[in-house]
Design a binder for these strands. Structure first.
Lengths: 139, 139
DNA sequence: TTTGTAATTTGTAATCATTTTAATATAGGA
DNA sequence: TCCTATATTAAAATGATTACAAATTACAAA
């Protein structure tokens, strides 16, 4: 399961397994899909009242650099994290800010011009859509 | 030209034309392509030493809401603005953080699944690539 | 099981970007 | 030229993130 995988990845990297870290793993892999730092902190603080925001930041950063979660840069207002690293796009409602996954067929892999492909070593890509969800457009 | 257009757009919106605003227009449409707030502020401050950051923030926000420039959400570290509103993608070097425009042929217009298209009123989309530019991968 | 130590967590303070506020200045119509 | 709504400024407030030092803890080795 995901949590075991994360524990293994941390061990392999020579990092220690602390209850705080495990709680963060648990939250990421069982909760609503695109939590913010504060979402995560609120949950962890419920279980470890003395937990520090720093711990949350550090653990998230470690997970990002291990390639196990991704930062979603869809908006400058918030910083969301995505435990799903399979290639997919996102759509955000510009009003309620909710983010949803989109699994599309062709993620424009081939739309990069030749000269860009030559001048860069491509490491990743992100596709974001912006819109009004049905709930918000009703109001 | 772009600057005249912006002046007209501001006038139409009942907004005043101040030298600070014009200087921001000028910088956006003649300088390097994807400036940050600080890039813009540094330039304006060279011409109006007493200019305030607030003015830069306000003017940029107004231009965004007029649809005349766009915020680039490629990174959480920086906030870049793009005076080019024609549809195009961006690529950022993860090391030097430089952002380049990409004019691709098919910007995956049709990759949105039917059900998403039904549940949202789509307002925009962004495509970002991440990579190492040739200069940075040489080091 | 105990111990030692390096890594981690915590709490606080520092930093940085952005927004708010209130007072002053100014664009532009009358 | 005058008037007034709007814009600018400077300073303070806010909020997110990072840095730091001291206290704690995971876990490997004894």
């Amino acid at each position: 399961m995901h949590i075991e995988r994360m524990i293994r990845r941390f061990r392999e990297a020579g990092l220690k397994i602390t209850p705080q870290r495990v709680a963060i793993f648990e939250y990421l892999y069982t909760s609503s899909s695109h939590p913010t730092v504060d979402d995560i902190y609120a949950y962890i603080a419920g279980r470890f009242p003395s937990v520090s925001l720093t711990t949350v930041y550090n653990t998230l950063q470690t997970m990002v650099s291990l390639g196990e979660i991704e930062e979603i840069a869809i908006s400058h207002e918030r910083r969301n994290f995505d435990p799903d690293t399979k290639p997919h796009a996102h759509i955000m409602c510009v009003r309620c800010k909710r983010i949803e996954d989109i699994y599309t067929k062709n993620l424009s892999e081939n739309c990069l011009p030749e000269d860009v492909r030559n001048r860069y070593r491509i490491l990743g890509q992100r596709i974001y859509f912006y819109g009004l969800c049905s709930r918000c457009s009703a109001e």
